[in-house]
Each structure stands twice: as structure tokens, then as C-alpha cells.
């Protein structure tokens, strides 16, 4: 009886695999054409594996265009954003969840409101603010907003985690003569390591892929991150699809590799907030 019910309908099976093709084949097609020349892409072999692997496309993406510079900028901005966001959020969440002060519930709610502010909507005042601070076309003009806009979600996740830790830990630390800073760094931080790992992945994806703020605040070629730098490729490369595909493949490698290596953690990181927002 149950085994019959457990068997899944072949129609749904076809749908599962059919959609998997829709979801992944465009990417495979992209990697394929990053290794082909135009003749092969357009005429002789648009769908299949390249007949000859043309790695020279990667050489031209790297040498003739600014891909290495964009890549380095993305790494720099992303790393500083991760460190900044996580440090600020862990400290704030610890204080709001465990320390004793008036208004801490309100403070936590106040910061969480930020989850409902889409960054595109505040672009105009944000651009003016950055200009007034004389930060236009600096790394800081990306890093500071990236940190600020990631704080709401990160503090919320850490807050939830700190609330589950029993009070006895701090009590015994206090009796042992530790001060609050030692308690935070030696006892609390190790305990929240798993959520820190989750949030590092989340902030990494958000910062590496961020586009609207970069578009609005960066015009200097030397400071462009990958999502911003690659947006003009269509124009530049219309005659050279291979190199365009190569640049896009290079830009996607870090996030795709991280995802394939840590797929479950990444999915968890991306979906962890669903219980709260909405």
C-alpha cells in the first residue's frame, strides 16, 4: 500500500530532469562557448562540446580587458565587507541578546527594519550622502554601504543564536573572575562559530554579486568590481563571444565553486531568514 504511494509519477520525474536541463544547460552552453571561436558558436557547433579547446579566449579576456583588476577589486571589497559585517553584527547581537540595558529590544527591532529597505530605493539619497562625505569613487564608498545593508540580517541571525545559549555560562565565567570581554571572546565567540560560518557565506555571496550600489557610486575603471565591469561587455565583445564567455566564467567561478563544495551550508545560509521576514 505505502510502497505504491511512495512511487513517484513518471511525469513528475520527467519534469524534475527537464527543469534541471533548463536550469543548468545555459551555464554549460556558456562554458562551452567560452572555448569556441565565433564560427563554431554561430554556425558549425552551437550546442555541443567544443571541437577544439580554445583557451586563448581566456588569455584575451585576461590580457586585453580589465578582468584581473575587476577580480582583485571584488576580492578586496568582499573580504573587508565580510570581516566588517560579521564583527559588528556579532558584537551588537551579543549586546542586544545577553547584556542588560534599557531599550535593547527596541534597538534590535530598529536594526531589523533594514531588511525591508531595498537598496535600489534609497539610491538617490545614498549617492548624495557618499558625495557629501567625499567618498565617491573610493573602495570605502562600496564597503561602508555593503556592511550597513548586511547588518540587519546578520544581527538577526546572531541574535537568534545567542538567545539559545544558557545563562549559566556567563554566570560561571563571572564567578571565575573573567571580565565581560574575556567572556565574549573566549566563551561566546567559539559557541557561535557555526552561525558565523553561515553568515560568512551569505555576506560573501551578497557582496561578490552586488550590482546597484556599485553602478551608482563607481565610475572609475580602476575601482570597478566584476558585476559592474562585466555589464559593458556585451558592447565591447559583440564580435568576440568566446572572450565574453571566458570573462563571465571567470567571474562566476568563486561563487559556483563555494556552492558546489558547501552546497548544504550555502542553501542554509540563503534560506535562514525565511522564518522571520515576511
Amino acid at each position: 500500500m505505502l510502497s505504491k504511494l511512495r512511487k513517484s509519477n513518471p511525469l513528475f520525474q520527467i519534469f524534475l530532469w527537464g527543469y534541471a536541463i533548463v536550469s543548468v544547460y545555459p551555464l554549460i552552453w556558456m562554458v562551452f562557448y567560452s572555448l569556441k571561436d565565433n564560427n563554431e558558436i554561430f554556425v558549425t557547433n552551437p550546442f555541443g562540446f567544443p571541437t577544439q579547446l580554445r583557451f586563448e579566449n581566456y588569455v584575451s579576456a585576461i590580457s586585453e580587458f580589465n578582468v584581473p583588476q575587476y577580480f582583485l577589486n571584488s576580492v578586496l571589497v568582499t573580504v573587508v565587507t565580510i570581516v566588517g559585517t560579521i564583527s559588528l553584527a556579532v558584537m551588537f547581537a551579543y549586546s542586544a541578546a545577553r547584556l542588560r540595558w534599557k531599550g535593547k529590544t527596541f534597538a534590535q527591532m530598529y536594526v531589523v527594519i533594514g531588511m525591508f529597505v531595498p537598496v535600489q530605493v534609497v539610491m538617490i539619497p545614498l549617492a548624495i550622502l557618499v558625495r557629501d562625505f567625499n567618498l565617491t569613487n573610493t573602495y570605502a564608498s562600496l564597503i561602508i554601504p555593503y556592511i550597513a545593508f548586511n547588518l540587519s540580517f546578520s544581527t538577526m541571525v546572531f541574535f537568534g543564536f545567542f538567545r539559545t545559549i544558557p545563562n549559566e555560562l556567563e554566570e560561571s565565567a563571572c564567578l571565575d573572575g573573567a571580565n565581560i570581554y574575556q567572556t565574549f571572546f573566549k566563551i561566546m565567540l567559539p559557541l557561535v562559530k557555526p552561525s558565523i560560518a553561515t553568515m560568512v557565506i551569505f555576506v560573501f555571496l551578497a557582496a561578490w554579486n552586488e550590482y546597484p550600489i556599485a553602478l551608482m557610486l563607481i565610475s572609475d575603471e580602476a575601482l570597478k568590481t566584476l558585476p559592474l565591469g562585466l555589464q559593458f561587455f556585451q558592447g565591447q565583445f559583440t564580435t568576440d563571444w568566446g572572450a565574453m564567455g571566458a570573462a563571465m566564467t571567470i567571474a562566476s567561478l568563486p561563487t559556483v565553486l563555494i556552492y558546489i563544495l558547501f552546497s548544504e551550508q550555502v542553501e542554509k545560509a540563503m534560506t535562514v531568514g525565511s522564518a522571520v521576514k515576511g
Binding site: L27, Y211, L230, Q231, A251
Partner: peptide, 23 residues
């Protein structure tokens, strides 16, 4: 299957848009 469905989520919007411009 799960990995196949989720991979586009981790790409940047620029790469996805450029890819679809080509498609």
C-alpha cells in the same frame, strides 16, 4: 537535482543578464 536548481542563484545578476542577452 538540488544543485542544478540552485546554481543560478549564486551567480551575479550581470553574468545572468549577459548570458541571457546571448541566449
Amino acid at each position: 537535482l538540488r544543485i542544478s536548481y540552485f546554481i543560478p542563484v549564486v551567480l551575479s545578476v550581470t553574468v545572468v543578464c549577459q548570458l541571457w542577452l546571448a541566449m
